[in-house]
Design a protein around this nucleic acid. Structure first.
Length: 391
RNA sequence: GGCGGGGUUCCCGAGCGGUCAAAGGGGAUGCGCUGUAAACGCAUUGGCUCUGCCUUCGCAGGUUCGAAUCCUGCCCCCGCCA
């Protein structure tokens, strides 16, 4: 073992929460061959957000050192459906949906990864196994072992349902590691149990055990819970520059250090006020996901709309049906912004609706079309439409 | 198989014959303040042709002048015992 493997291992593990077992990565690197670094993807949620990029960036570091990233699409597991806990809503997906989701996921992941060094696999290749083989897999692990997983034990203690299928999930994921002969598996810290179980199962199959590398979980926009699409506190890598910029600025200050560390690998500039540091963060993120040019215009857009309270320069048009009739405002607002008419009425009553800079009230339920034509309708802080009447 | 506990609006959770579109909290949204931060205050949070009307409390029937609340059947969930 040479010093360079030690320093490589130290570099790759520098911002990981766990890299297990101790010096396992160093030993793997010492074999001198390209390592197979595994990440499992859930094709039910095709949108890649900043939280995912923490792990993806780590994968990229492996790629840049000549290792192979093995992405596993969990198409088989997605087709079975996941009954986990309260989210029993999680649907079984059809083959086409899984494929479409997977494609879009990989495409988005390619904003971080080098697409030329990816081995893409589907776990239906090996999980569609005979029952004897499933039994062999099931034999590797005991219920007590599975119940050690934190969320299982918590739910079990709270008398919440845990289906057999759920207990099987970690085993299936572990078997993925057997099938692709993973040297390293990455995940968030919430994956620690599953990654370690992968080692046990690999050992049972007589395969060299993988290294479990876990990355910190990125906090969502609420500053408290982990970033996830279903919680609605995420920034998707495909979102517009303006959205990314604006959402980043809405991040609570307390969460900013974590974002700097996990997304940029540095600390916030010490000489900047929190507000300015956050602007710098927003700018950097837009630069990364779009371009420097986009970052610049997103900052300008933000300044204009949210600091100066001016109208953005690219407002969507909304066309009226009839140039002469009176317009029922609740209906118009409902149609433009996807809300109910009742909700629109309430917003009107709360001073949330402006027409051409003037706040409307519930006295303005019906307005003549000529008053609307060409004017800007603003609903809340962020909803803008330019009203157009047909000629 | 036996016994017990449940299914209420986005979520949690009160309500147990009228005063219920349904307490309280969370979340979300709006307004104010502000750095689209935090904290704080106020308001809104089923729908609509909106001082009223319509449809909701697992599903289907029934009792009643009147049901989320009572009865019957069904479906689903949880726990315990075996």
């Amino acid at each position: 073992m040479t010093g360079s493997e030690a320093s490589d291992a130290a570099f790759l593990a520098r911002d990981a929460v766990d890299c297990l077992p101790d010096s396992g990565l160093q030993r793997k690197l010492a074999t001198g061959r390209p390592l197979r670094v595994k990440l499992g993807l859930d094709p039910t949620a095709p949108d890649v957000h900043l939280g995912h990029t923490v792990v993806l960036r780590k994968l990229r570091e492996f790629q840049d050192r000549g290792h192979v990233v093995v992405l596993i699409i969990g198409d088989y597991t997605a087709r079975i459906g996941d009954p986990s806990g309260r989210s029993s809503i999680r649907p079984r997906l059809s083959g086409e949906q899984v494929d479409a989701n997977a494609r879009s996921y990989v495409e988005q992941a390619a904003t971080v990864l080098d697409p030329d060094c990816i081995e893409l696999r589907h776990n239906s290749e090996w999980l569609d196994m005979a029952m004897v083989d499933l039994f062999a897999l099931a034999r590797t692990t005991t219920v007590a072992q599975l119940l050690e997983r934190d969320d299982f034990s918590t739910r079990y203690a709270a008398h919440e349902p845990i289906s057999i299928l759920e207990l099987l999930y970690p085993l299936m994921q572990a078997y993925d590691s057997v099938a692709v002969r993973a040297d390293v598996e990455l995940g968030g810290t919430d994956q620690k149990f599953n990654l370690l179980l992968g080692r046990d199962v690999q050992r049972a199959y007589g395969i060299d055990e993988q290294v479990a590398l876990t990355m910190p979980i990125l906090t969502g926009l609420d500053g408290e819970r982990k970033m996830s699409k279903s919680l609605g506190n995420h920034i998707g890598v495909g979102e517009s520059p303006e959205e990314i910029y604006g959402k980043t600025l809405s991040l609570p200050d307390a969460a900013m250090d974590g974002w700097f560390a996990l997304l940029l690998g540095e600390s916030p500039p010490p000489d900047l006020a929190p507000r300015d540091a956050k602007h710098a963060l927003a700018r950097r993120l837009v630069e990364r996901l779009h371009s420097a040019q986009d970052a610049h215009s997103a900052a300008e857009h933000f300044e204009r709309v949210f600091v100066q309270h001016e109208i953005p320069d690219d407002v969507e048009d909304a066309w009226l049906d009839d140039a002469d009739a009176t317009v029922h405002m609740p209906a118009l607002i409902a149609a433009c912004f996807g809300r109910s008419r009742s909700e629109a009425r309430r917003l009107l009553g709360q001073g949330a609706v402006k027409l051409g800079g003037q706040t409307l009230t519930t006295d303005d339920l019906d307005l003549p079309a000529e008053r609307l034509d060409g004017a800007i309708l603003q609903v809340g802080k962020r909803g803008f439409r330019r009203i157009r009447a047909p000629r």
